[in-house]
Amino acid sequence: MKKLWKGNEAIAEAAIAAGCRYFFGYPITPQNEIPEYMSWRLNEVGGSFVQAESEVSAINMVYGAAGAGGRAMTSSSSPGISLKQEGISYLAGAMVPCVIINMMRSGPGLGGIQPSQGDYFQATKGGGHGDYHCIVYAPASIQEFVDITYKAFDTADRYRVPVMLIGDGMLGQMMEPAEIPPMKNINRLPKKDWAVDCNNGGTQRLINSIKIDANELEEHNIHLAQIYEEIAKKETEVETYLCDDAEYIFVAYGSVARICKASIDELRKEGIKAGLIRPITLYPYPTKTIAKYAKKRIVKKFVTVELSMGQMVEDVRLAVNGKKPVEFYGRAGGNVMMPGDLVKYIKEGK
């Protein structure tokens, strides 16, 4: 049944439906509804919630709980996600699957609390130290946030990688009707033959990211790279909207993609053929889809739209590879562009 859900609370309930029983968090605006919801809801379903002393501690509790085989999650917003980066690197290194939510706010530093997409680089290009990636999803609606949170735990377990979902304050705070998928039976989840659970009949299980021997570590790096390659093949997700006859193609993700859609509808009313490529996964990036449209003669240019001073635009340029102009439209500091702004931008730049 559909209910009117606040984004943050819907994410929390979707995680529980997916079998998440361990949540560790620390207060920071604009994601507080996630830990608040988890604090009473996990209690109802026999799980465990800890308000950690810091984001640093919270992500390491995730490392412990997920390393011990539980489905574990943490959530935060930009400055807090920076603090978690050490732990995320360890999770990636030790191949401990988990789900991390970043409801981005504007930065750098303490910045502001209004919507932003300034953590694109951090989320997709590493964030922590070392040679690793998280799978990064950027849902654009509350229903999509729910559906991706729900499957993120399976995806994380399948590849043994941390999965990050990034949204912004807008998606966390807004309400939309959404339906939570059915509650999974946690006893029927696939067994984790690597998790520490004292149940291994004499052979030690070890959660570890230290590999002091160069050859051993290189082998591990290659192994991880192979996993990322497989992820790129199988998990890349992208939506195209009215691209087939489009002369102007917006590239945007998350809530900004929705603003682009509204402006495309306006532009088309005036006979201007605009379309949208919306990456749903930011890592792996839908390079092939963008490259495909870059080759089309009808396409005049790409306009990357972000709540930043220009981060994803670099990946768009790599994908377009010089075949078409790639322009950038951004707002920052927590300001959000309006559909009319983009309509004006396209009309003036024609």
Binding site: E176, R258, I259, K261, D265, M338, P339
Partner: peptide
């Protein structure tokens, strides 16, 4: 379906 949740006008 609702595209932009923000309202300019």
């Amino acid at each position: 379906p609702i595209a932009a949740p923000v309202i300019d006008h």
